[in-house]
Nucleic acid binder design. Structure first.
Lengths: 189, 189
DNA sequence: TCACGATCCTAGCATCGCTAGACATCCGAG
DNA sequence: CTCGGATGTCTAGCGATGCTAGGATCGTGA
């Protein structure tokens, strides 16, 4: 029956409603404020409904993380293709730092809270899509090294910049200069 | 009276007992397993005793973080002075990665759980002591840039390598190669 | 119309961080 | 040596958390 399809459609809608609500609440008041009770009240359903969609609170965080990684991937790729020739690396790196600064809660979900996301060979498409633009800008700089290793090292450098800056570990007003150092170190020969 | 001094001595002993217990429990079963109740039972005191030493659970985590940062600083400095001339950077970087891999719970406390630690100008000595060996190996590579900015960028690169590897985001067997890439990028020219 | 199945909610459990108030213990003054 | 006060510790409990069992309610198809 068509009823079945409508049901599934409504279920899918409600699932994105949940994920979006969790994301907005986290971005507004931090992840500790995203409790199952408050989330349920926000979407105007009772708590057990959440558990019919997700295995638990952690699974909801993972869903936000996956969504965020997809957006980060799209943002990186957009920065790459929109950059002037020769400036792709800088554009991608800047996009990465901007994403971390503008969506701290999503970034936190993706890189420190998520626990159920598989990595390595059987990672979701969003994760591989995020690696692609990084590989595109770092691989040409590989020289004698393994292009993937260079990409991973470059990614790590940018990521470290993002997380240490977010936690207030670095001098706030020198982010631009730190990035310039990194770019020069990676591009020179 | 001398009684006062004995009291303070015993209090200090118990405080380190608490911090060490928290650290061991976290290293054994992860931070979520370090509850106030379990910690109290472990040290064979009731819960309120913990609150007479620390403002709350978070303050205990901060204490472990500070302790760990001190050890990390000592480890980095030892690696630097013990390295052959010209290999100080590699030794320090390797020590950083080793510390993160061997004490994941302490590393987590120091860099993702700690919330009450002050940074910037009025940071505790342990934090400044940790920056010193990094500055010592990175500043000579500054060239035209600000030495502190280069140090921060280099630290971020190593740190990113540590956290991404810890979370299983990077290919496990290529850590050595990634580090080699980083070292070459920073030392060339 | 009616019985069945899916959907949802109320109520509750165990556990968490934290705290008030009672109890015990130790110290120094008389 | 005794006793009052201060110090230290514990028992018991509060509000809130993540999660779940069981019953009520609704729509569906015969």
């Amino acid at each position: 029956m068509a009823t079945q399809q409508r049901r599934e459609r409504e279920r899918a809608q409600r699932e994105t409603l949940i994920v979006n609500a969790a994301r907005e609440m986290a971005e507004a008041d931090g992840w500790p404020a995203v409790t199952v009770r408050r989330l349920a009240e926000r979407i105007e359903y009772s708590q057990p409904v959440l558990y019919s969609h997700f295995a638990g609170r952690g699974a909801i965080v993972d869903a936000v993380a996956l969504l965020g990684i997809g957006e980060l991937a799209a943002s990186l790729e957009a920065a790459r293709v929109g950059a002037a020739p020769g400036e792709e690396l800088e554009a991608v790196a800047q996009a990465y730092l901007d994403f971390a600064a503008e969506h701290p809660a999503v970034f936190e979900a993706a890189f420190t809270l998520a626990e159920g996301l598989p990595f390595g060979p059987d990672a979701p498409d969003e994760l591989k899509a995020g690696f692609a633009p990084l590989f595109a800008v770092f691989a040409p700089l590989a020289g004698d090294h393994d292009p993937e290793a260079v990409t991973e090292a470059g990614w790590a450098a940018i990521h470290g910049l993002a997380v240490l800056a977010r936690d207030g570990r670095l001098r706030p007003r020198h982010q631009r200069e730190r990035l310039a150092v990194l770019l020069e170190k990676f591009t020179s020969t």
